[in-house]
């Protein structure tokens, strides 16, 4: 009888997916279906490996603890030293495993936001149209640190604030009616580490994360067919961060919105893909037929 675990053995990642997992970013021009297949592959790998990171870490500490206990016991019964060595070996095994899982762990916004958004917008993007896209899945890394300062401590002993700027998604896609859409998403993370001493003289620490997601959407209508209704744009600008710009390749209307999330750890929540669609609907509602048509 064939062994079932052979049948469900995961396929090796494609070279492009492996490159994303290693470099944590990708830039390219590809048709929609290629982007979706590639990002879905990375998402599937991330979804399987992500839940294994925590258990692997716990096992490192578990086996290290066992190794220490057996080492102490070995001073009484020498043959227990073998168990200590085996435990230390297991700790090493899980350390390597943890490190490998960690090195391919990617930020989740691309699968929670971008991948779902692409599925919705597939309705409007022609199958052969090439989408230019830059996706960074590394999250708030040291390279993205833009500010670090000590705040007035107040009742605390020390407050350190760090700000990271993570512009993780830029894309431009042709739409089936000749217009083009643009999307930019930047996450700005602010993390505060507070340290204080409690009444018993023990030093305590607490971390607070804030995630500000700035979404900018743009629409370049096909001038042969459509243009923006300036009166409607002007009226709407009063309520929204909306701007109409003349560019060499036509007029672009741009809408920016910000979404805030807070957590004790790196916030997992982000803007919903439906919200992005809603923003494009705002731009779509400002169009009128161009005089040329």
């Amino acid at each position: 009888m064939p062994r079932t675990n052979q049948a469900i053995k995961p396929r090796a990642p494609s070279p492009a997916a492996r490159s994303i997992l290693q470099l944590k970013r990708i830039y390219g021009r590809r048709p929609l279906n290629e982007w979706r297949a590639l990002l879905a592959e990375v998402a599937a790998i991330d979804r399987t490996s992500e839940p294994l990171v925590g258990p692997a870490r716990r096992k490192i500490f578990g086996f290290l603890f066992l190794a220490a206990v057996f080492a102490v016991a070995a001073t009484f019964f020498i043959y227990v030293a073998v168990l200590s060595v085996v435990s230390a070996g297991m700790a090493g095994f899980y350390l390597v495993r943890w490190w490998r899982l960690r090195s391919t762990d990617v930020s989740n916004d691309f699968r929670n936001v971008l991948l779902k958004f692409l599925r919705i917008m597939a309705e409007d993007i022609p199958a052969k149209g090439r989408i230019s896209m830059l996706v960074d899945v590394s999250g708030p890394t040291k390279q993205k640190l833009i500010a670090e300062k000590q705040l007035p401590p107040g009742r605390c002993k020390k407050i350190v604030e760090k700000v990271y700027s993570d512009p993780w998604c830029h894309m431009q896609a042709p739409l089936s009616n000749g217009s083009r859409m643009l999307l930019g998403i930047e996450n700005r993370y602010t993390v505060q580490q507070r340290t204080w001493t409690n009444l018993r003289g023990k030093t305590k620490a607490k971390t607070k994360w804030k995630k500000l997601v700035k979404v900018t959407v743009g629409l370049i209508p096909d001038p042969e067919r459509l243009c923006f209704d300036r009166d409607r744009v002007a009226r709407r600008s009063g309520q929204e961060n909306l701007r109409l710009m003349q560019k060499p390749r036509g007029e672009i209307c741009r809408l920016t919105r910000k979404f805030k999330f807070k957590d004790r750890q790196l916030p997992e929540a982000s803007v919903s893909p439906e919200e992005l669609v809603g923003m494009f609907f705002v731009l779509g509602s400002l169009l009128k037929p161009s005089r040329r048509s």
Partner: peptide, 21 residues
């Protein structure tokens, strides 16, 4: 739009400019 033969590098540059603007 996005079909047929096109100047890949030119299109790439133009789109990067559009994104920057």
């Amino acid at each position: 739009a996005g079909e047929g033969p096109e100047d890949e590098e030119g299109a790439d540059r133009e789109e990067r400019d559009d994104l920057d603007h």
